[in-house]
Design a protein around this nucleic acid. Structure first.
Lengths: 239, 239
DNA sequence: TCAAAAGTGTTATCATTACACCCATGG
DNA sequence: CCATGGGTGTAATGATAACACTTTTGA
């Protein structure tokens, strides 16, 4: 079977940049080892061709599950990469998606055709296939920008967590060298009012930490009122 | 001539959302009236098919100039729209770009095939072709978010401008109902340190305003140091 | 001398930073 | 009773918001 058109058409693919946290101290990304040319044996982002009747996001999730076994992920569109020479097979335009997940809750499983799947530390990446190093760089920057103004980190921790866990999560995602100031981190996070106390640790060999949970309703309220605030304020120039 | 492939391929287009300011008091967007089916005679964003060897951004700029005569614009990728039914002709995936320009410096000129080109007030839009209303909404939100932390407004004013002009520009782009507080707007903008005084108005029937120019070098410095600051601070949660 | 728009003083309140210090637990 | 994190007090400084007031010009 073949398909004929009056004008040439590019191929369209999707790629997924899935970040995962290991023990809250290491930011990793999910890569597969390619089984075919081009770039056979090179590491690459999971992804593949979009079906003709398939939504872009659905295509990304399908390819992700087919190639890595990872599913039930909230992905978000990152950017579309379409340089004419980015794929040696011809013109291929790729819409990239990204997500941050708890990697313990997302076990990987290599696809049938024996491709390997692995979580790589983002600070120790090999040279990737295609323009995937570039895609990853864009994704890391976006993740770090986003983590500042949206509480995406909360879903990566257990239902109940300590402020120290939360802080080290932030330090990892942001890739800071010095730890953040404990006092100030706490004041700030608590002042936001989106955490509720739900108990305290037991059986630890030090003062037991308070446990917190993310208060989703409070957060939704905040988003609304904050939006009105911004409008009123005008310029922020946070740069 | 025709082109044959083993698998079906979507078409790929680009669309441009070009915002312009009229007298610093009205935010407008550039639309064309379609000359052909589908959606003949409906208003739509300028855009069209990507050539096979052409960069995405180049395609957007080419279509923009072909259809509206507008050129020399800094566009930025907005989002990729790819719902399977968004175009009645078949699967069409569109990469949208956007920009904010001074519309006096960008005269429009309808394309040869007699399509009309017009600047529409964003608050009084007709029903547009395809999913273009949706694309525009995404673009407006992005523009308003961006204007808060990047000085994109400066390029829309004359080389030398007054703080009142700058303020009304912000009020327009942000679509606020009440004017921003003059005192506080000024303090804030000046405190940033990216404006330099370059003179004062002459021949006006009121106290002459100081004229300012945007200090690009200072801005670049700021961006750098501010970035380091953000890293050090960790979380912001501006929501 | 008046209208029009530019521009400034001031104060209360809140947020941010930096540092040092105390607390509760199990071994 | 000590090591180990967890957790708090505080003071200096800076940012923000709100409001009313003064200044400079041409007509």
């Amino acid at each position: 079977m073949s398909y004929t058109y009056d004008y040439p058409r590019p191929s369209v693919t999707v790629d997924c940049v899935i970040f995962g946290l290991e023990e809250s101290t290491e930011l990793r990304v999910l890569l597969i080892q390619r089984g075919h040319e081009p770039f056979k044996d090179a590491w690459a982002l999971p992804g593949g061709f979009v079906d003709l009747e398939e939504d872009l996001e659905a295509a990304a999730l399908r390819e992700l599950e087919e190639e890595t076994g990872v599913r039930d992920v909230f992905i978000e569109q990152l950017y579309t990469f379409g340089a004419p020479k980015r794929d040696p097979r011809g013109r291929v335009i790729s819409i990239a998606y990204y997500a941050l997940v708890n990697l313990r809750q997302h076990p990987v499983k290599a696809a049938s055709d024996a491709k390997t799947v692995e979580w790589f530390n983002v600070n120790h990446l090999p040279k990737l296939a295609f323009d995937h190093n570039e895609i990853l760089e864009v994704a890391i920057n976006r993740l770090r920008a986003k983590v500042r103004y949206q509480p995406i980190g909360f879903e990566l921790l257990p239902e109940e967590f300590t402020l120290t866990q939360l802080q080290s999560l932030y330090e990892t995602v942001l890739g800071v060298d010095k730890p953040l100031n404990k006092r100030n981190f706490r004041t700030r996070i608590l002042k936001m009012g989106v955490l509720k106390e739900v108990g305290k640790q037991e059986g630890v060999a030090h003062r037991p930490a308070k446990l917190y949970a993310f208060d989703k309703e409070k957060y939704e309220e905040l988003v609304k009122s904050r939006y009105e605030d911004l409008i009123k304020r005008g310029v922020d120039f946070e740069i």
